[in-house]
Nucleic acid binder design. Structure first.
Length: 289
DNA sequence: GAGCCATGGAGAA
DNA sequence: TCTCCCTGGCTCC
């Protein structure tokens, strides 16, 4: 589920569902029991995302909740009016599976599952985490030049650099594959060989793609002329819902040229690309294997 | 029921 | 580069 757009969307949804309301925290699974008890019944002020990190603020509490969903985590927000007095009554809102943190109010509740991180942190600790992150295309305060300085002097491949949260915050495996495809870039191109105009185009594209992701709560990267209706093909139906060019389309024909999509592990994750639309660059990193 | 996989990342080696 | 953690859904037997 979680690339940066997911977390920004969750921050908006949490704010809309709980902002300004008195909330109750609990940890049915138990692993956030101390934190939940420390928060206690308290007004939630708001939430914000930075890259794939989510921070939740409560009134009168200096610490904030820091959530990182990891690969498999999810935060499900439900709205709906329970029976009066049902807040805290787990029978009224049954716990399904491993719920690390339940947040509820009289009008909504949210269940956090599978997160790698859910903890209370001090302002100093928060600042330290943020300092480690590169610019986030979804934030107005982001400076793409900051990422460019890292990329421009790196011998790592652009495919690896895009996944490095200290270079760029919020991009994950789907956006990395898709943005490289959209710009016909060889994923194995070394960062130091990327041109500034290529970087500016990538950044601008990510800003648009990820903002769309927040709005629609899914990743769509296919241009209008390659959409299913335009090409007379069946829409993609999988757990993401969105239309993509290469992500998880191994061996399937490229939507643009028909060449089978390739896959290989890069930076510890499955990379997908079209060998014809993203040809080997002469600026590419020396041949491996 | 076991095994595998996933939009992530930390820590060991 | 490897190993491990987090959880649920899907496949295969």
């Amino acid at each position: 589920m979680p690339e940066g757009h997911t977390l920004h969307r969750l921050a908006l949804d949490l704010g809309a569902a709980f902002g300004g309301d008195l909330t109750w925290s609990s940890s049915p699974q138990g692993r956030f029991a101390e934190g939940a008890a420390r928060i206690g019944p308290r007004v939630m002020e708001g939430a914000e995302a930075y890259g794939k990190q989510l921070f939740v603020r409560f009134a009168g509490l200096e610490e904030q909740v820091r959530v990182h969903l990891g690969l498999i985590g999810g935060l499900a927000i439900h709205s709906g009016l329970p029976e009066p007095g049902a807040v805290g009554d787990l029978d009224a809102r049954p716990v399904v599976g491993q719920v690390r943190w339940r947040l509820e109010s009289v009008r909504a509740w949210a269940d956090l599952r599978g997160a790698t991180v859910c903890t209370l942190i001090t302002p100093d600790e928060k600042a330290a985490y943020l300092a480690k992150l590169g610019p986030d295309p979804l934030r107005d305060d982001a400076d793409p030049s900051q990422a460019w300085r890292r990329i421009n002097r790196s011998r790592s491949t652009i495919g690896a650099l895009l996944m490095d949260q200290s270079v760029l915050a919020g991009v994950g495996n789907v956006y990395r594959a898709e943005v490289l495809f959209r710009h016909n870039l060889d994923p194995f191109l070394e960062g130091r060989f990327l041109r500034r105009d290529e970087w500016d185009a990538i950044w601008g594209d990510l800003v648009g793609l990820m903002a769309y992701g927040v709005t629609h709560n899914r990743i769509d990267t296919v241009r209008p002329e390659h959409e299913p209706e335009a090409m007379g093909r069946a829409p993609r139906e999988d757990d993401h819902g969105g239309e993509v060019y290469v992500y998880r389309r191994t061996h399937l024909p490229c939507l643009v040229c028909g060449t089978p999509v390739r896959t290989e592990v890069l930076a510890g994750r499955n990379l997908f690309w079209c060998p014809r639309c993203q040809p080997r660059s002469r600026r590419r990193t020396p041949v491996r294997g």
